[in-house]
């Protein structure tokens, strides 16, 4: 890539989003999703990590009708359209929460704690939720 092109496209950095909170109980999950979309809109190299209760954000079959909240889970399926394709879930978190990849709304890569550590190390910027 020429210097000129770099200037036109700006600098691309690796943005890592670490999601550790369940959806709905707090606003973290929804806020993270919005910031992920902002990163994608600026054509950054986005990775999204789900660990601890954050893995519950991707649970299939969320239905918020009776509780009157906004169901934002379909947005995870739209991430692909924004070129956000690097979704990682920590295996250890899934295991103790009774989840398997069949329970999830989007295809993800299941990673061990050690692999998650490396993914986090590889980022230029980490945004924590």
């Amino acid at each position: 890539m020429s210097d000129e092109m770099m200037e036109d496209e700006g600098t691309i950095k690796k943005f890592g989003y670490v999601n550790r909170k369940a959806p709905y109980g707090t606003v973290y999950a929804l806020e993270s999703l919005e910031v992920v979309l902002i990163g994608a809109a600026f054509d950054q190299d986005v990775s999204v990590i789900f660990m601890d209760d954050g893995v519950y954000q991707l649970k299939k079959g969320q239905d918020t009708k009776a509780s009157g909240m906004k169901n934002f889970s379909p947005t995870y399926r739209a991430l692909e359209g924004y070129d956000v394709e690097k979704l990682y879930v920590e295996k250890e978190s899934m295991d103790i929460r009774g989840l398997s990849t069949d329970d999830l709304i989007v295809p993800v890569e299941v990673k061990s704690s050690e692999e998650i550590m490396q993914i986090m190390e590889d980022q230029d910027i980490i945004l924590s939720f």
Binding site: Y24, D63, G68
Partner: peptide, 13 residues
């Protein structure tokens, strides 16, 4: 609470 189970997609588990 069922509405909270449903919101989180865990009503069948």
């Amino acid at each position: 609470l069922a509405p909270d189970l449903e919101a989180r997609g865990i009503q069948d588990n």
